[in-house]
Simulated assay, not measured.
Amino acid sequence: MKTTLSCRDVTRLVLEGEDRHLRLSERLGVRVHMLICKTCPEFARQVQFMRRAVGRWKQYGDDGGDGSDGGAPPR
C-alpha cells in the first residue's frame, strides 16, 4: 500500500468500510489522511449521518410509522 492515500482513495475506503471490515493497513492509512485533510473527515461524518438516518427510516417503516393504529381508519 502507498504511504499516503489520496482523497479519492480515502473516499473509496470510507464507503467500502460500510460494507466490509477494512484491513489494519487501510484503517491506519485512512486515519493518517484524516489528520492532514480538512474535507475527508467531513465526508466521513456525512456518510455516518446518512447511515444513521437510513437506520432510523428503516425502524420507522418497521414500526408501522404511518401514524395509524394498526389498520384502523384515522378519526
Rank of each mutant, 00 (worst) to 15 (best):
residue 61 G to V: 10
residue 74 P to K: 06
residue 58 K to F: 12
residue 35 L to Y: 11
residue 69 D to S: 10
residue 14 V to G: 01
residue 41 P to E: 01
residue 19 D to I: 02
residue 58 K to G: 00
residue 48 Q to Y: 07
residue 50 M to E: 15
residue 62 D to H: 04
residue 5 L to C: 00
residue 45 R to I: 06
residue 59 Q to H: 05
residue 35 L to F: 02
residue 1 M to A: 12
residue 33 H to W: 07
residue 19 D to Y: 13
residue 4 T to Y: 05
residue 62 D to C: 02
residue 37 C to N: 13
residue 64 G to L: 00
residue 72 A to T: 08
residue 14 V to I: 15
residue 45 R to C: 03
residue 41 P to S: 01
residue 39 T to Q: 13
residue 1 M to W: 14
residue 74 P to A: 12
residue 23 R to D: 12
residue 56 R to C: 07
residue 61 G to W: 13
residue 55 G to M: 01
residue 58 K to P: 00
residue 61 G to P: 04
residue 55 G to F: 00
residue 23 R to K: 12
residue 4 T to W: 02
residue 66 D to N: 08
residue 15 L to V: 12
residue 25 S to N: 11
residue 70 G to F: 10
residue 16 E to N: 09
residue 31 R to V: 08
residue 42 E to M: 14
residue 71 G to C: 08
residue 26 E to C: 00
residue 14 V to Q: 02
residue 66 D to M: 03
residue 10 V to S: 09
residue 16 E to G: 03
residue 75 R to F: 09
residue 66 D to H: 06
residue 4 T to I: 04
residue 51 R to L: 05
residue 60 Y to H: 14
residue 3 T to H: 04
residue 24 L to D: 14
residue 61 G to H: 13
residue 7 C to M: 03
residue 64 G to S: 08
residue 75 R to D: 13
residue 3 T to P: 01
residue 22 L to D: 07
residue 18 E to I: 10
residue 46 Q to C: 07
residue 63 D to Y: 12
residue 15 L to S: 10
residue 20 R to I: 13
residue 74 P to R: 09
residue 47 V to Q: 00
residue 51 R to G: 02
residue 49 F to V: 06
residue 24 L to H: 10
residue 40 C to T: 12
residue 5 L to M: 08
residue 34 M to R: 11
residue 39 T to M: 11
residue 23 R to E: 11
residue 40 C to G: 00
residue 22 L to Q: 04
residue 5 L to K: 08
residue 40 C to V: 06
residue 15 L to A: 07
residue 9 D to F: 00
residue 47 V to T: 09
residue 23 R to W: 05
residue 4 T to D: 13
residue 22 L to V: 10
residue 30 V to G: 07
residue 49 F to C: 05
